[in-house]
Amino acid sequence: MKRKYIGIERKEARWGFAFTVPAILFFSVFSFYPILNALYTSMFDKRVLSLLPPNFMGLGNYTYIFTSPDFWNSIRATFVFTMGTFIPIVIFSLMVATFMVNLKSKHARGFFQIAFYTPAVISSVVAAAIWLLIFDPRGLGNQWVNAFLNTPGIDRKWLADKTMVQVSTMIVYFWKYIGYFVILFITGLSAIPPAIYEAATIDGSSKWQAFWRITLPLLKPTVVLVSIMAMLQCLKTFSTQYLFVQGGAPRAPINVITLNIYTTGIRNQRIGRASAMSIVLFLIMLIFTWLQFRFSKSEEVEY
């Protein structure tokens, strides 16, 4: 009897292993090996076109990138883009989500959800292409802003001015992802039991008070998580910046880290240097992911 029991257990283990092995092999080759390889390569002066074996440089690539104004500019561009995108996106999507849960008509809510989400459905390259035309000097961007501010004929230089081109990339991202974040917040808001609001209403609190005193504190974990998620996404931004540069916008103001890695590694064939940049990007994102896990563990709310 005992022997047979062990047999079943072993058989189970064998099958479990068989089912998971393909994925393990896959992740080893296409995730773990590349990141270790990036770490290794970042210590060498590797250039693809060179036939000489690469020289060991130790931390040479890191000292190079951290003393190069070009890389600091990329870090600046990435952080400006991340802060300038995720803060408005979180605040606006929270506001819009609050408005939407207060809609009495279910149909209206469903309609707005779908309409706001539609830009997230198209690909980011298409989004950038559309806005490239809107930001044309004669395009809709200038027409709308000038109609709104009543300043006919002024060119805002959406793609030419170094500040405006950064704002433009933020607008594209904001437009594309607002609906996505609205839905995340609606999920969070619907999890708050209505009984709490009823109690507050009975106690004589207004909607405004209820929002600040009940909704926001209870929603804090969702806000923190959504913020970190938004930041992680913004740190990885590539398509919009790439397409804008292709379309003729100045590179320097929007030369985010990913774009710099691409240019350094693929166009200029400086593999070692690009690997060092990749490791820096990885570490930055690791810190944010760690924060995400920490918050998600400690801030869980039970109703």
Binding site: I24, F27, Y33, P34, I261, G265, S278, F282, M285
Partner: peptide, 21 residues
């Protein structure tokens, strides 16, 4: 845990070694 850990590796950080693979 190992599979979960790969979620922390952004594609953008491994694209160049991946290209070499």
């Amino acid at each position: 845990m190992m599979i979960m850990a790969t979620m922390m590796i952004p594609f953008e950080a491994i694209m160049i070694p991946l290209y070499m693979v």
